[in-house]
Amino acid sequence: MQDVWRTGINWDDALPPNLLAVWKAWASELEFIAKLKIPRCFRKQSKPLEYELHVFTDASKAGFGACVYIRTKYGEENFSLNLILAKARVAPLRQLSIPRLELQGAVLGARLCASAVKELGPIASNVTYWCDSQTVLQWIHPTRCKYHAFVAHRITEIADTSKASQWRHLPGNLNPADDCSRGISAIHLTTQHRIMRVGGRHAHSVHSTCVHSGIRQASYHPGSHQSTLHHVDPGGT
Rank of each mutant, 00 (worst) to 15 (best):
A21Q: 08
R94Q: 12
P171K: 03
S227F: 02
V206I: 11
P234M: 11
A186Q: 11
R6E: 04
A218P: 02
K24V: 00
K146M: 10
G236W: 04
A110G: 09
I195G: 15
Q192Y: 01
T143L: 09
S97K: 06
L229P: 14
D132T: 08
Q217R: 10
P122H: 10
M196Q: 15
N173F: 14
R94N: 13
C131M: 13
V90K: 01
H230G: 02
I158C: 14
K118G: 10
P16H: 03
R40G: 06
T228Q: 10
D178R: 08
T228S: 04
N175R: 13
I184Q: 14
V55M: 13
T190A: 12
D160V: 00
Q217F: 07
K37Q: 09
A152K: 11
N82V: 05
W26V: 07
T209K: 14
G172R: 08
L81H: 05
H204V: 13
A86R: 07
S115T: 11
E31L: 07
K73A: 07
L103D: 10
V232R: 03
A164M: 02
A110K: 00
K118C: 09
I215L: 15
L15T: 02
F32I: 01
Q2G: 02
S185L: 08
N82A: 14
G235I: 01
T209N: 15
N175K: 14
P171H: 04
A159V: 01
A59G: 12
T57K: 05
I98N: 05
H231N: 09
L137Y: 08
G109D: 10
L53G: 06
L19M: 06
Q138R: 09
D178E: 15
I184S: 13
S181F: 00
S205V: 07
V198S: 15
R216I: 10
